[in-house]
Amino acid sequence: MAVLLSLTLLSTWALSQETWPQPDWPQAAEINRLAWCQVQAYAFAPRDDRNREGVRTDALLVIKQGQVVYEHYAAPTSAQTPHLTWSISKSVLATLLGVARQEVRFALEDPVARFYPPMQAHPAVRLQDLLHWASGLDWQEAYEYAPLHSSVVAMLYTRGREDMAAYTAARPPAAEPGQRFLYSSGDSNVLAAALRTMVGPERYRQYPWDALFTPLGITSAVWERDASGTLVGSSYLYMSARDLARIGLLMLRDGRWQSQQLLAKDWVVFNRTLFTKAVAEPGEANPGGHWWLNQPLPGGERPWPDAPAGTFAALGHWGQALYVVPDEQLIVVRYADDRDGQFQHNELLKRVLAAQSGGRP
């Protein structure tokens, strides 16, 4: 009994020592600014806006143990700017779904058609398949490089833009559900449509705020909907860097926000569990449950070798990133306008990790 009491008191003391943004992020008391010079030099190199070449960072925010240790912006972006997150939206959608699951509104094994009737044409597709980007539906996720053949361009900008989930549900099958990873913004928008049935149409419009943003103190969020009223869960969430870091802190602390367990711990475990039915691409993270992991696929190597294996991230088009590094209690938010392949996740993380340790590699 005495041991249990001691452990309880120790746990209570540890929780009381945690730092939270109340209401905003506190600054670390001591910062070795010289240690961050290499981060600054890489992330904010002289900017080529005419040709849109090179590393073009708009915002970089680093939080360690709940305190700001580095923050810099390139005009016109500022600490107050709700920046387009692109596909970071997908991971925030997964976090929102985690709250819905905590409310016992669905199970991972449920067929998607239970919540989104147009998916009755694909009755074997489960919610967990969508969360692994493994619906099996035929999809081409390409923007600039193959726009005429791009499913995502058609969904976001042309014939699918009025009802993005319906456009996706009408795609033909290309593989058995759950058997092949095929990155698809359409899968994410079907999830966003299914959420409407889970929570009810009356609550759906306000649900991201009531369930997630307001409890976390997020005030800058703007989330676009298509003409059918469905959240564009794949792409069109805007948020300031400081607010996005709150999502990172929630995930870093296993779904707990102060004393409230907003997400079940096993949901965060699911997000951070490698989906092995994928093909590794050099430098790119590997899929978890609608988050990206620094874990190697079988027979492969760690995508970001200079970052701990437990690092995970939400990633978006043109260089958007929310990295979470549990080993170092770090959260890194990067907003950007990269238009070529010069930016490397591993290089930024290597420099951030060196800087936060005082410049030691």
Score class of each variant (00 low, 15 high):
residue 207 Y to R: 01
residue 219 T to R: 13
residue 268 V to H: 04
residue 66 G to I: 05
residue 336 A to W: 08
residue 55 V to T: 01
residue 64 K to L: 13
residue 217 G to S: 13
residue 300 G to P: 15
residue 343 F to C: 10
residue 44 F to K: 06
residue 168 T to A: 04
residue 333 V to W: 07
residue 327 D to F: 09
residue 227 A to G: 11
residue 225 R to G: 15
residue 217 G to E: 00
residue 272 R to M: 00
residue 341 G to S: 08
residue 16 S to N: 03
residue 326 P to N: 09
residue 150 S to C: 01
residue 264 A to P: 06
residue 181 F to L: 09
residue 39 V to G: 08
residue 305 P to T: 01
residue 250 L to E: 00
residue 295 Q to F: 08
residue 188 S to L: 02
residue 157 Y to R: 14
residue 130 L to H: 01
residue 334 R to M: 13
residue 25 W to E: 14
residue 84 L to K: 07
residue 125 V to R: 05
residue 235 S to W: 04
residue 343 F to V: 07
residue 220 S to V: 09
residue 291 W to T: 03
residue 162 E to D: 07
residue 173 P to V: 14
residue 172 P to G: 07
residue 179 Q to T: 05
residue 239 M to F: 02
residue 234 S to Q: 10
residue 69 V to H: 10
residue 139 W to C: 03
residue 227 A to V: 15
residue 36 W to R: 06
residue 20 W to E: 15
residue 174 A to L: 14
residue 100 A to F: 12
residue 91 S to T: 14
residue 289 G to V: 00
residue 34 L to V: 05
residue 259 S to Y: 14
residue 141 E to T: 15
residue 69 V to Q: 09
residue 113 A to V: 05
residue 90 K to R: 13
residue 331 I to D: 04
residue 228 S to Q: 08
residue 176 E to Q: 06
residue 12 T to A: 01
residue 16 S to Y: 05
residue 40 Q to Y: 10
residue 13 W to F: 15
residue 138 D to S: 12
residue 192 A to T: 04
residue 263 L to H: 03
residue 211 A to L: 00
residue 92 V to P: 04
residue 143 Y to E: 10
residue 259 S to N: 01
residue 243 D to N: 06
residue 348 L to W: 04
residue 278 A to L: 05
residue 289 G to F: 00
residue 241 A to H: 04
residue 357 S to N: 01
residue 166 A to F: 04
residue 13 W to E: 15
residue 133 W to H: 10
residue 331 I to A: 02
residue 85 T to F: 06
residue 63 I to Q: 04
residue 150 S to H: 06
residue 267 W to E: 04
residue 198 M to C: 06
residue 191 L to D: 01
residue 239 M to R: 01
residue 17 Q to A: 15
residue 219 T to W: 09
residue 122 H to D: 01
residue 80 Q to V: 04
residue 258 Q to S: 14
residue 18 E to Y: 00
residue 132 H to W: 03
residue 128 Q to V: 13
residue 253 R to L: 12
residue 314 A to N: 02
residue 234 S to L: 07
residue 110 D to A: 02
residue 220 S to T: 10
residue 171 R to H: 12
residue 10 L to A: 11
residue 27 Q to D: 13
